[in-house]
């Protein structure tokens, strides 16, 4: 169990290093997606391992996904306005 925590921590630091290196070494808007992807992976690691969502009951996972989905609604619909004006 604590092995999983340590692995997650190493993974987080590697992802962080990767993301910072992308920004520092290869600047360009093309890599924005990569930065955001790394952030999502880091968040997923914290959620599943540190916050035990992996072993939690389905309901808690539903709450977490639900809150994200609601944020998605907000982003999607308000962007729909700003981008088509």
């Amino acid at each position: 169990m604590s092995k999983a925590l340590l692995f997650a921590w190493v993974g987080l630091l590697l992802l962080l290093a990767g993301s910072v290196l992308i920004t520092a070494l290869v600047p360009g808007p093309a890599y924005i997606g990569l930065n955001i992807g790394f952030a999502v992976l880091m968040a997923a690691l914290i959620f599943t391992v540190f916050m035990k969502l992996r072993s939690a009951d389905g309901l808690l996972r539903l709450f977490a996904v639900g809150a994200l989905m609601w944020l998605g609604f907000f982003l999607l619909f308000s962007l729909a306005d700003f981008l088509t004006r």
């Binding site: 993301s19 992308i22 920004t23 924005i32 930065n35 955001i36 952030a39 880091m42 968040a43 914290i46």
Partner: peptide, 17 residues
């Protein structure tokens, strides 16, 4: 709170191009 920071860091510090 760590997760929040990961997104703040990525969106504000890292997206510089």
């Amino acid at each position: 709170v760590d997760v929040i920071w990961v997104f703040i860091f990525t969106l504000l510090y890292l997206l510089r191009s």
